[in-house]
C-alpha cells in the first residue's frame, strides 16, 4: 500500500434544526417544527438558486443542501476532473420516508394515482444522482444501507477507491431521514499534499469521522 495520506478537507452536519461546519454553527432563529420548514429556510438562507430543489424528496433535499454547504466553501469542480470526483453515501432507512408517500398514492384503489415524480425518489441513490447532477460529478458513486453511521465502511471503501481508481477527491457520509428525524454528515476527502504535513486538517479515518459525528451528536 502506498504511503499516501488522506485528509478531511471539509465537513458539514445537519441535524434537527442545526447546521454545523468547521468553525461555523447555524441554528435558525425560529424553532421549526417540521423538516419541510427547516430545509426551506436553509435553502433560502444559503441563496441557492436551483428550482429543481423543490421537486426533490426529503432525503435528496437533505443530502443536496449538505453537499451544497461543503462545495460552496470548498469547490472541487474547478480543481478536479468530473471523473476524478467520487461519492459514497449511506443510511439506515433507505428511501422509506418517500416509499411511504408513494405508497399513499397506490394503496387505495378508488383513488389510485401513482405519482411518477414521487416514485423516482423511492430509490435511496437518487440523492447521489442529484448531487452529481448539480456538481458535475462523474466518478464512482455508491449507496450503502447500514444500521447506524458506519465510519469503518466509509473509510474502507473510500480508501479502496483512492487506491484502485484514479480518484482525487471523495464526498462521503451519511444521509438519513424518516419523518421528522433527520441527520446528514458529509465529509470531503482529499489527498494530503507532501508539503502540508502538520496542517490542520483531520486525517481521513473512521476515528476522526466518529469524533466529529458524535461530538456534534450530543
Amino acid at each position: 500500500m502506498s504511503g499516501q495520506q488522506y485528509q478531511i478537507s471539509y465537513w458539514c452536519m445537519i441535524r434537527q434544526n442545526r447546521v454545523v461546519m468547521p468553525g461555523r454553527d447555524w441554528v435558525p432563529n425560529e424553532n421549526f417544527l417540521t423538516f419541510t420548514e427547516f430545509i426551506k429556510a436553509l435553502y433560502k438562507k444559503e441563496q441557492v438558486s436551483y428550482p429543481k430543489f423543490y421537486k426533490m424528496d426529503n432525503l435528496s433535499k437533505l443530502g443536496f443542501l449538505c453537499a451544497e454547504m461543503i462545495f460552496k466553501n470548498n469547490p472541487v469542480t474547478g480543481r478536479y476532473k468530473s471523473e476524478e470526483i467520487g461519492i459514497i453515501l449511506s443510511n439506515s432507512s433507505s428511501s422509506l420516508d418517500t416509499d411511504l408517500d408513494y405508497y399513499k398514492t397506490i394503496k387505495d384503489p378508488s383513488s389510485y394515482f401513482p405519482s411518477p415524480s414521487v416514485f423516482v425518489y423511492t430509490l435511496p441513490n437518487i440523492v447521489t444522482g442529484e448531487i452529481c447532477i448539480r456538481n458535475r460529478i462523474k466518478g464512482e458513486n455508491a449507496f450503502f444501507i447500514s444500521e447506524k453511521f458506519n465510519s469503518e465502511l466509509l473509510e474502507t471503501y473510500g480508501r479502496l477507491l483512492f487506491e484502485s481508481q484514479h480518484m482525487q477527491t471523495l464526498l462521503c457520509g451519511w444521509v438519513e431521514i424518516l419523518k421528522e428525524k433527520y441527520e446528514a454528515a458529509l465529509f470531503l476527502i482529499e489527498k494530503k499534499k507532501d508539503n502540508e504535513t502538520g496542517n490542520e486538517f483531520p486525517e481521513f479515518s473512521a476515528r476522526s469521522m466518529n469524533t466529529l459525528y458524535y461530538k456534534i451528536n450530543n
Binding site: 428550482p51 429543481k52 421537486k55 394515482f113 401513482p114 405519482s115 411518477p116 415524480s117 423516482v120
Partner: peptide, 15 residues
C-alpha cells in the same frame, strides 16, 4: 425548466 417526469406528472393531473 420542466422535464420528462413533469410531463408524466401532468398526465396524472389530467386524469
Amino acid at each position: 425548466g420542466l422535464d420528462s417526469i413533469d410531463a408524466l406528472e401532468l398526465i396524472v393531473l389530467l386524469e
